[in-house]
Design a protein around this nucleic acid. Sequence first.
RNA 1: GGUCCGGUAGCUCAGUUGGAUAGAGCAUCAGCCUUCUAAGCUGAGGGUCAUUGGUUCGAAUCCAAUCCGGAUCACCA
Length: 599
Amino acid sequence: MTLAAQIKQVAEQALKSLFPEADIQPSQITVNQTKPEFTGDYTLVLFPFVKALRQKPDELGRKLGDYLVQQGDLFVSYDIVSGFLNLTVKDEYWTNFLVKEYNHTSFGARPVNGKRVMVEYSSPNTNKPLHFGHLRNNFLGYAVANILQANGYEVIKANLVNDRGIHICKSMIAWMRYGNGATPENTGIKGDHLVGDYYVKFNDIYKEEVAALTANGMDEATAEKEAPIMKEAQDLLRKWEAGDAEVRELWKQMNGWVYKGFEETYGRLGVNFDQMYYESDTYLLGKSLVEDGLKKGVLFKKEDNSVWIDLTDEGLDQKLLLRGDGTSVYMTQDLGTAQLKYNDYKLDQSIYVIADEQNYHMQVLKLILKKLGEPCADGVYHLSYGMVELPSGKMKSREGTVVDADDMIDEMIALSQQQTEEAGKTEGFTQDELATLYNTIGLGALKFYLLRVDPKKRMIFDPKESIDLHGFTATFIQYAHARICSILRKEQVPMVPPAETFSNFTSTLPVLPAEKKMLLILEQYPAILENAGSEYNPSLLCNYCFALAQQFNSFYDEHSISKAENEEKKQLRLMLIVMTAQVMRNAMQLLGIRLPEKM
RNA sequence: GGUCCGGUAGCUCAGUUGGAUAGAGCAUCAGCCUUCUAAGCUGAGGGUCAUUGGUUCGAAUCCAAUCCGGAUCACCA
């Protein structure tokens, strides 16, 4: 149990035994960390009780404070400041905590809870390369999956690839018309980029053709439908659906190029998947669900034979589930895929990492599953995140106004190289080690930049401003970690010392303020990790790690570790920094960010 | 128009069920490297928490209304 929770419990007990006649609700008890300008570690707010107990705040505080200090073994003293009971925890608690946990490699992780959850993320279209917005999705999904795992869940990372449909046909038709047999091999262009180039080409030609038609007097709406290249793309889609061998062959080939490109990018990003789903396999699913729904009377048919669900009593609209000709729509296949996932893995929870533009769709999906009585319905959770936009607005791959993911990675690595060289910190590294270091710093900065903001908030990225390597960044945390490792190397203490290393440590001296600040924050890690899991919010770990590194840097500045005042302080501080580095590594690893031992 | 999300320092963002004088980073300014890594530390300036009203011992936080920004409401995916 966390210290804050313990204090809450002890306070409740104290109130009950001091005022047995009063009705104290646990929810009334608020325990906060004491503000730095007051003495104390944790603070109990007295106001909620003054009325019920008919006590003046300060009197109540004295009674409570006396009781807590005398009866319990947690506090050494208390202080009352206008209605706030500031409690100081015994040094003994802190040193015991440190000795017990300093080399605990999985500190904060929770035991397996027997629940299985799928995190679907990335889910790219195969007609273009990944851009900056996809990065947020990938980092978020990967981090949330790790965080849930650390919270005891069995996690399956899934990727539902949108490999069929009109978008890929657009790339295909442009390649057929203008490609001259271009391949990644004979052009040297990465496969996903090559296919993306033809997607852009399609849109250029399409625009020209529409312009030509309107110039001849056709109205725009008709022109958009009648443009030859669009009709050819649609024709291609029909052929694809009919199983035309030639079309399928080209489709397979071009998708193959894209997959190879994606694989490379995923590798650089450090993300991976346990289960791939392809829409070409799943797009026909869901029809049987619709049939069942009709039988159950949950769905209804219109005159033209199309199938609908009425959600007006939920404040929503009617939603189409099957076209008049019996073909399925997006929602139909999503229903089927939800069922498929559930049947494949018997999931307790199914998380979809999808941008907030699909909030309505996901809300409706869950609702329909519920109305159909599907067991997977309750577990469906939309992890909705805000889109990454440019100062000029949304990124549009059709118009080529995107920040490409591969380019961004290259830029970040180059930036970290440049700044490392400028700082003159390249000595003592081999070329290979430097390459690894630049990668660690560059990708760390990129990931942290995208993960540090509350997922549901949209964010604006200005490509003109490079991502900072100072302040609230991964670099800051990496640097603190490297400093710790440097001390440990010097003192010949392993990163994870065996239990006997500090077995002769005994605590006799007071814990100093800077030391206690670190212990306070370290003790809070398990609670932060749990929160990050229950809220699906990696940014909590970003904030936490930054605060921890900040605290360490202040500590480092104020107290020497190697040349501590005496042996006891040296040992205590070594344990302190061992644990700090361990917690940093654990938390950052969940975010997919590595911490160098030297930088 | 309906629904949902957001509005906190010049900029980017924290602020965990309502708690003390609203905090970080960037940028600006002033200090700190014969001492474990200065990618760091210390300090200063900078705020009508969009607006108004309400709830109460207490509101950035809860409620209502208004203003601004965004998303969505397809026989698209």
